[in-house]
Design a protein around this nucleic acid. Structure first.
Lengths: 345, 345
DNA sequence: CGGTGGCTCGTGAACGTTCACGTGAGCGTT
DNA sequence: AACGCTCACGTGAACGTTCACGAGCCACCG
């Protein structure tokens, strides 16, 4: 619209005004050199006289010139940007996974743009819409089914976090819930517990709940679906609320298996508020291995997950996808939880 | 180097091989349409026959075509990418700040690429080197002085987190440490404490330590520099170690002011291990307001900071910088801590 | 039957950089 | 004096996409 400069009069610059960003041409003109020389100066390559270099840099400073990352990226390939979608940055679990992703990405020279979906499926899709345009690959937590993801993905490679191979066609990195839960249930069983409830975090029968039910069957425990309560959210408050309901429905329980550490901590708080001392009256077992678990009283027994490794593995999967290789599918794409016995169970 | 297609024979594609990425031209040729039509199909604009659109999309799928974000960005302006540099994702404080940044950025339609500097000045500079090339602005925590930052910034706007105006020429968002510390010290003083130590987190005399010393003077407390111990790191372990030293140097203290909540929690643990009960024998005051503080026993009294707001403010500063406006300088760019009294003090 | 308008599609240009060359000046060597 | 080499710098092309415009086609209306 603003077709100014119609005569191309020299010196017609209005420096302070909110005009378009200066380009390499503008700098070249102001410094009285060619584009290439400007390029040499700002990228400090050789083949340039120190004096002219200084002159060019001065001109660039004057015009507040910054090279366009788009024009640059267009001509010199190799800049990789990955997207990372995290459900909730306030749950300490996820920043740790993110740290693993960031670390592995940094090693490869990649950048990571992070998106906090805040456990909202709409925002999840929105993240995909944006990242599919701006990233070369996406890794993250998604609740939506494969076909929805595909639709919003536009062909960008995707690596799912915490999904098993039977749950998705996409490449994924998972947690070996079965093995973890088995360890935990064995521990509770050996400690004499026979009436064990579960505070789940998701509504459907996810891997952790399925594993829990299977282990309960294996150990001959009197457990069915109503020993499982779903917490309203993955947080301490959610665990507190869930525990209230579990205690009301099944007051006879002597142990509780938490979907994650936050929920387990909430369970401990409710138990104590209800007059049950942990671990004597009620044992509590977590799942995650947050460092938070060491700080609460009693310290939380939990199934520790190497979260950084989870993140690093995800980046490795992305690398495979990009290289056209087959992604890891079996146990190589799993992280196996490790039982950490502290005071709560 | 691989100058194939020297005759431009049609159908000379080798689909499965690791060749260069397909461009819009390739898709156009395969589908027998023009570039523009391909563009219309993949961006689903109007002005295209549904049948040809499907044909084009099929061709795109076949060639695994994805539009170049660089070429796109070059022609259609408006995609803003900000860089966020965080010192330590494992400290729960920072993910929360990041959440604020991400939230505000999302509202503006910006993306955020996150970098974890892991408290390493070299990595800090490295982050700047990359982000100055790939981001339109940078916000974050930096230890380096202004001139070092400038050198690695290449003209990209920068907003510093937790720096006061007297500490930098850059735009910044700070925490009103003076007001916060004053509240905290008043609280301790009113509770009868006269011998108060500090567990600092940084070596130089930062705002929190200066405010602490000033308040101590104001209240007439017998406090000088050796009542202040610097913890080796900003973590529970760091607080434990620092508290050991403080207790050894000044066993007469009745209260401790922690640089942040993690350090304060560490102080509580060491105090208890040393046989001092909190808060009866020793009061502990934190600074941050992590949700973690509610979970430890006794619950941590602390100066709560609205971390999300801090992050949102930082994004607002970036927006001002980009618009050519003056950044907020005074109290508008501060977050004022709020004393939250719980059990530990 | 000519004009008008709506679809569908194609063509050059532009976006801002870097790359691969090319060029000319200056200087030393034989 | 002719040649060759190095240094400093400039010139066209290319990167892959979208935008503005224009063209062809068919149908409908007066």
């Amino acid at each position: 619209m603003w077709t100014d400069n119609q005569g191309a009069e020299p010196g017609a610059e209005r420096p302070g005004s909110a005009r378009r960003r200066a380009t390499i041409h503008d700098v070249a003109r102001l410094a009285g050199v060619s584009r290439q020389t400007v390029s040499r100066a700002v990228n400090d390559k050789g083949e340039i006289d120190p004096a002219t270099k200084e002159r060019v840099l001065e001109a660039a400073r004057l015009l507040d010139y910054r090279p366009s990352r788009f024009a640059r990226g267009l001509v010199q390939k190799g800049a990789v940007t990955a997207g990372l979608v995290i459900p909730d940055l306030r749950n300490p679990f996820f920043p740790e996974v993110a740290a693993g992703v960031l670390e592995a990405a940094e090693q490869r020279g990649w950048q990571v743009v992070v998106w906090d979906s805040r456990i909202d499926e709409a925002r999840e899709r929105q993240a995909l819409d944006v990242l599919s345009h701006q990233a070369d690959a996406v890794v993250g937590y998604f609740k939506g089914p494969d076909d929805v993801l595909t639709r919003h993905l536009g062909g960008v490679p995707l690596v799912l976090l915490e999904r098993g191979p039977q749950q998705t066609r996409f490449a994924a990195v998972g947690i070996d819930a079965a093995t973890g839960v088995e360890q935990g249930m064995n521990h509770l069983f050996r400690a004499g517990h026979r009436r064990i409830g579960m505070l789940d975090g998701v509504h459907g029968p996810g891997p952790r709940r399925l594993a829990f039910l299977e282990q309960a069957r294996r150990l001959g425990l009197p457990v069915d679906e109503d020993w499982v309560v779903v917490c309203p959210e993955h947080s301490v408050a959610g665990g507190e609320a869930g525990m209230e309901r579990l205690l009301a429905a099944r007051p006879e329980i002597t142990a509780v298996f938490g979907f994650n550490d936050l929920i387990a901590v909430g369970a401990m708080r409710t138990a104590r508020r209800r007059g049950r001392s942990v671990p004597d009256d009620l044992a509590v077992l977590g799942f995650d291995g947050l460092s938070l678990g060491e700080l609460v009283d009693p310290a939380l027994t939990t199934l520790h997950i190497d979260k950084r490794r989870l993140g690093r593995l995800a980046v490795e999967q992305v690398a495979r996808l990009r290289a056209g290789e087959e992604p890891l599918r079996g146990a190589d794409a799993w992280v196996v939880p490790e039982l950490v016995i502290r005071a709560s169970a």
